[in-house]
Design a protein around this nucleic acid. Structure first.
Length: 197
DNA sequence: GGCAAGATTACC
DNA sequence: GTAATCTTGCCT
């Protein structure tokens, strides 16, 4: 049904990988069933030179360690009570990553509703990074996994359904110059794109 | 709009 | 020890 994408896909600069991920599927297979969504919003984090990145100035900790590894690795981390998903970009050894912020459900909608809450409006199931992780059933146990291997993987999708938009990233208000970098990528007009607060 | 939840990490 | 963070949901 869904096939993991070629590992070579991830071997590209983070500012190219971030928009390339738009329109691809993110798929999670569990005993409860399969959930899949088409990615409509991402953000690039440019490791060493990006004050908003966890890996700014090559900061290497137990948490950021994974970003120094191969492109295509799964970088998950906890933000307060939520799990956020990142894709490690190339080249190997540079701590660059793409945050997946929003996606449109295409399979397993009932399962996502079960995980998120039955009476939410549909866009609220997955229009934010923490919401998306919960809807797909992604937890910290996937830290260090590969985005091109089951049961959690990226699959080739139909591409963008609207105009590609760029803009400043969300939630990084205190990072000086980096605040203005237009490294957020999303599909114009899509209701599954997250909102500023 | 305010604020708490509560993992990880930096800095005092 | 204290504060900040790539967020969300509930309260007023």
């Amino acid at each position: 049904m869904y096939q993991p994408i070629d590992p070579e896909f991830f071997r590209q600069p983070v500012l190219e990988l971030a928009p390339s991920l738009l329109g691809q599927y993110i798929v999670h297979e569990t005993p409860e069933g399969l959930a899949a969504a088409r990615i409509v919003e991402t953000e690039a984090y440019h490791g060493p030179e990006d004050r908003a990145a966890h890996s700014y100035n090559n900061r290497r900790t137990k948490r950021t360690e994974i970003m120094f590894g191969n492109p295509g690795l799964v970088y998950t981390y906890q933000m307060h009570t939520h799990t956020l998903m990142n894709v490690v970009a190339g080249p190997e050894g540079t701590p660059h990553a793409v945050l997946i912020r929003g996606a449109e459900p295409v399979d397993g909608l009932a399962l996502m509703q079960q995980r998120r809450g039955e009476h939410l409006r549909i866009p609220d199931l997955t229009n934010g990074p923490g919401k998306l992780s919960k809807a797909l059933g992604v937890t910290m146990k996937y830290y260090g996994n590969r985005w091109y291997e089951e049961p959690l993987f990226i699959a080739p999708g139909p591409g963008l359904g609207g105009e590609l938009m760029t803009g400043p990233r969300v939630g990084i208000g205190n990072t000086g110059e980096a605040v203005h970098y237009p490294w957020r990528f999303y599909e114009a007009g899509n209701p599954f794109v997250s909102k500023y607060r």
